[in-house]
């Protein structure tokens, strides 16, 4: 658990972070969102004490960070830097192995861990382990950045715009992977972005920041339904909130289940239980169907969802 109590950071006369109170529960993903220069990175960097705070206190698992050894604190916090920050003179494998090496893990354990992480992030160890960062694409480099942060299995993950410099499709893939990994490893995560859609997709709770302050800290659904101010309202987009809410809910919520799953039927682009309602509606509009079948992860048909019900109850 991470607690920020009345935390302030000044740079000379400018106040970058202004009396911030924020509690991040163990295992949840807290997304800091806000426009450029609002103090997101500064907040993140105060949590691992890369920047000392000017006032207030920061507690990690109940312990004040100013009293802790900064190296010890940081070794237990994976950190993904804005703009990857990979070391250009080290190979991909060596970059990922960085924290385990600092922790003096035995060689075999490091090698095995690097291999495991590269596979987790969909990077083929045979082709990529010995490349240098300059030889990677932007998306691959960011995967390596995430792998490096996860390497020593830290309890806490700090991610500063980890998917910043990539195209929309790669970004989407990385987000899906992030969700998959989060389901597997459950880290207490502080994730910085200025993309509200990314925030809605990944967050357990979102903290909206503006000019160094936290305007609203709540679940994605509440942020959409009850924005605390005009600023939050314009950030989430006034008009298409309906569709955004739909994209937060899985098909499972509104489908009519069959008594027992029907045996699988071949088909590639079928709708799954954990796809979102927005996608389901889009499929039905495009194919001009009143209802579609829903499948589970094993490919069995488990129910149907109707267009009518989505429109009535979706948002």
């Amino acid at each position: 658990m991470i607690e920020l109590r009345n935390v302030t950071r000044r740079f000379g006369d400018t106040v970058a972070v202004d009396r911030v109170n924020l509690t991040i529960e163990t295992g949840e993903v807290c997304v800091l969102v806000g426009s450029s220069g609002c103090g997101k990175s500064t907040t993140l960097r105060m949590i691992n004490h890369l920047l000392p705070h000017s006032a207030g206190e920061i507690l990690v698992d109940g312990e004040d960070t100013t009293a802790m050894n900064p190296q010890q604190l940081r070794l237990n916090m994976g950190y993904v830097i804005q703009g990857t920050g990979l070391f250009p003179h080290w190979t991909v494998a060596r970059n990922i192995a960085m924290v385990p090496r600092l922790l003096k893990w035995p060689r075999q354990r490091i090698d095995a861990r690097v291999d495991e992480l590269m596979k987790l992030l969909d990077l083929d160890p045979a082709t990529h382990a010995h490349k240098y960062p300059q030889q990677l694409s932007g998306g691959q480099a960011q995967r390596v950045g995430v792998a490096r942060a996860l390497a020593a299995d830290p309890n806490i993950l700090l991610m500063d715009e980890p998917f910043g410099a990539v195209d929309a499709i790669t970004r989407e893939n990385l987000q899906l992977e992030m969700l998959r990994i989060q389901r597997q490893v459950r880290k207490t995560t502080v994730f910085v972005t200025h993309d509200i859609d990314e925030a809605l997709k990944l967050a357990s709770r979102i903290a909206v920041m503006d000019q160094g302050r936290i305007i609203q800290h709540d679940t994605p659904e509440n942020i959409l339904r009850r924005p605390a101010s005009d600023f939050v309202e314009s950030l989430v987009g006034k008009q298409d909130r309906g569709l955004k809410l739909m994209s937060l809910r899985p098909v499972r919520d509104l489908m009519t289940p069959h008594g027992s799953p029907k045996p699988s039927r071949p088909g590639a682009d079928v709708l799954r239980e954990d796809d979102n309602l927005r996608l389901a509606l889009s499929v039905m509009l495009w194919q001009d169907l009143p209802q579609v079948a829903v499948f589970n992860a094993r490919g069995e048909e488990t129910g149907v969802i109707t267009r009518e019900r989505i429109i009535q109850e979706g948002a």
Partner: peptide, 16 residues
């Protein structure tokens, strides 16, 4: 400086 920062942020000492 961002690289030095990355090192520090991941737990390196100033010497490292």
């Amino acid at each position: 400086e961002s690289l030095a920062d990355a090192g520090r942020g991941m737990g390196m000492t100033e010497g490292q």
